[in-house]
Design a protein around this nucleic acid. Structure first.
Lengths: 221, 221
DNA sequence: AGGTCAATATTGTCTAACAAGTACACATGC
DNA sequence: GCATGTGTACTTGTTAGACAATATTGACCT
């Protein structure tokens, strides 16, 4: 009787819904999520809520110390730096491999076209297609485990974005232009150049993000 | 009253013990691990055993379909290829970054010395220091998330080894020599050369592993 | 004001039970 | 003999309630 699409178990449904609420900013970083509260909110037993929370803790979205309520993970500038360093490692090698064959993923093209189309939209709407663009580069490697690792990393990147919500990190045109340059370099089999462009692109974004998080932490304190 | 070192919870103790038994080959791939059986074996409640099994499923050591007993994951040649491709991506960028500064991690040196010392030992004893060598390269990047990802990947590499147990995949001297060459290239800041050496090193190991797994699968069928 | 201690709240784990789904074996029909 | 269908047994999924262990918080005392 349960729906075949989307949800197969109660726990998975809870995980999916909590993820959405966290990414949408409905549950801001630092919010405590007690097991009993969650169980009551979703009308499930405590062990079920516990399982869902533990899953989210494992994926990094929630943080928990022993005998304390799980909280939505609060990221500082050091975390952002680490996250961007990690994604840079994976993406750098990805673009090198793609450049070695000159194959430009169709999905990356399409994602960048979406970004260009959103030229004057609100900054927050750029996040999704931007993530899609970068994920397309990694997914083009056709490695299930690499894609899975990057997907998990994407969750933490998304979580970063909820911290800075309204701030425009980079102008839309610049992002789209840099992406296009990256694709061109891949297409012309310039591995070293593509890796360099990507490193600059991510390094710049990381620096802005780190500065912003430092600012927030200072204000909050 | 609980020991501060090693184990903090019953679930974690179960996870630790099961991991050891799987890596030691005591529980070979394909073995079904029912929740009730595990609960009885460890003298814990079923929900506790369930939590431990779910953790191992998440880390890839166990595989489970809905309403079926979890089994120790059986890897085929395609899995081995994917695992080695994934580690190659991370390690390749790692050695490139290390070569850009010319910094050779001390831990990598020590691990390779261990391998050299084991020249005429049983092949299985080479696995641990070899994993330590490669992990040292990644850990030298000083990125918590990158190290965590690689640690998880190391578990699957270990699981690969349990499939081929007694077979000598590569001679000890060759491995140590290739490792040394890699360290020399990092030291001389030859990023491209180091990446190339690593790709060859892993590619060769992957091919041997894939062939072996194909052979096993054919015999088992 | 600072430190100690107790009350509180939360998680960690267990027992017991029912519901739901899958796999296997058996019987049946062709 | 073989394919098909059915039913049973086994396993997991989820719930409920309870007790133990621990971290936090506030009150109390010095």
């Amino acid at each position: 009787m349960s729906a075949r699409l989307g949800v197969v178990s109660v726990v998975q449904a809870m995980i999916y819904d909590l993820r959405s609420r966290i990414f949408d900013g409905e549950i801001p970083p630092g919010t405590p999520l007690g097991e009993v509260d969650m169980a009551a909110h979703y009308g499930v037993a405590r062990p079920t809520a516990k399982a869902a929370l533990e899953n989210l803790v494992a994926s990094g979205l929630l943080t928990r110390n022993a005998h304390q309520s799980a909280r939505v993970t609060v990221l500082d500038s050091a975390d952002a730096r680490d996250i961007y360093q990690t994604r840079a490692i994976i993406e750098a090698e990805a673009v090198r491999l793609l450049a070695s064959t000159g194959h430009v993923p169709q999905a990356a093209h399409e994602a960048n076209a979406q970004i260009t189309a959103l030229a004057d939209a609100s900054p927050a709407q750029i996040i999704e297609p931007d993530l899609k663009f970068h994920a397309a580069l990694v997914n083009a490697l056709d490695s299930a485990r690499t894609s899975a690792i990057y997907a998990q990393l994407s969750d933490e990147i998304r979580l970063c974005m909820t911290h800075v919500q309204d701030a425009t990190l980079l102008s839309t045109e610049n992002i789209a232009a840099e992406h296009q340059r990256l694709l061109d370099q891949i297409n012309s089999r310039d591995a070293q150049g593509a890796a360099s462009t990507l490193a600059d692109h991510l390094g710049r974004a990381s620096k802005k993000l780190e500065a912003h998080l430092d600012l927030i932490q200072q204000n909050g304190k």
